[in-house]
Design a binder for these strands. Structure first.
Lengths: 148, 148
DNA sequence: CAGTATCCAGCTAGATACTG
DNA sequence: CAGTATCTAGCTGGATACTG
């Protein structure tokens, strides 16, 4: 019995999934497109100015859990912890526990994390230069579709 | 009656959501983290070599719907159409219909789309240089957690 | 050829409550 | 202070079937 078209498609798709799973760019995209990763990187990668939108470059900053929670006002405890853990797991941030009472935990970017933060700033630059155009195109498109 | 802590938090969160919604970087991330956007950009932004992984730079290439569907073997019709439409909406690709029988539709990057593709290549470069480290850290972390 | 329409499984993020 | 645990609503992507 010959292979059906459906089987051929399934085979092709399986190979493709494998390719995607192995692709470094895909993995990077998966990592940075997390809702809170960019914000945490921005918070830890910026110096003094506690302002998310600020255009800043300097020494990476150490921040405590509660500081981050206050700065990223919209994040839930669950997501903040989860995101920090995954960043630690990937060697992008360090987690330091000081056994005071109550405990003090601080987070800081590693060199790798700092490097990622630099790259994110390139992305941010592109966004600031071009997203207005994108948005304008989007509005034009929508108005054309709404009133053809 | 004074405002409760819960109200204060809700207020803060609302402001934060507004900040996130207005943030150009966040919008850019939302756009490029779509599962198929990077692949379509890579396909349309590369010249001749019909190889997704290839490191290529040249003239943007015009491709037909069916060509894209064949090249991105894992994509469903729904997602390919949906993604292409949203890219067209944002002025990142052009959609050209030629009224042959049956119709011929081709897609090409705009200058803006090409610019985005250039930025994505920077991201790809970072990924190729550093994702191995990230993966290694991840493996180390997991083995430490598994056998503490 | 190049779509559109519909339905649904799976994952994610958030709310909420509890703790060493 | 800095988490963990649990439950669930909503969104995203995929499968499938149909069409100008």
């Amino acid at each position: 019995m010959a292979t059906t078209p459906a089987q051929t498609r399934a085979q092709t798709k399986a190979e493709y999934d494998a390719f995607l799973a192995a692709c470094p760019s895909r993995k990077l995209l998966d990592r940075i497109s997390d809702k809170w990763v960019a914000l945490i990187l921005a918070a830890l990668g910026s110096d003094g100015a506690h302002q998310l939108g600020a255009d800043c470059a300097g020494e990476p900053r150490s921040m405590r859990y509660s500081e981050l929670h206050r700065l990223l006002a919209g994040v839930s405890q669950k997501m903040l912890t989860q995101t920090l853990r995954s960043l630690e797991r990937d060697g992008l941030v360090t987690r330091t526990v000081v056994a005071t009472v109550p405990v003090t935990v601080s987070y800081e970017l590693t060199d790798l994390g700092l490097s990622l933060h630099q790259m994110m700033r390139g992305l941010k630059t592109w966004a600031e230069m071009n997203m207005d155009d994108v948005l304008a195109n989007r509005a034009t498109y929508d108005s054309r579709v709404a009133y053809p």
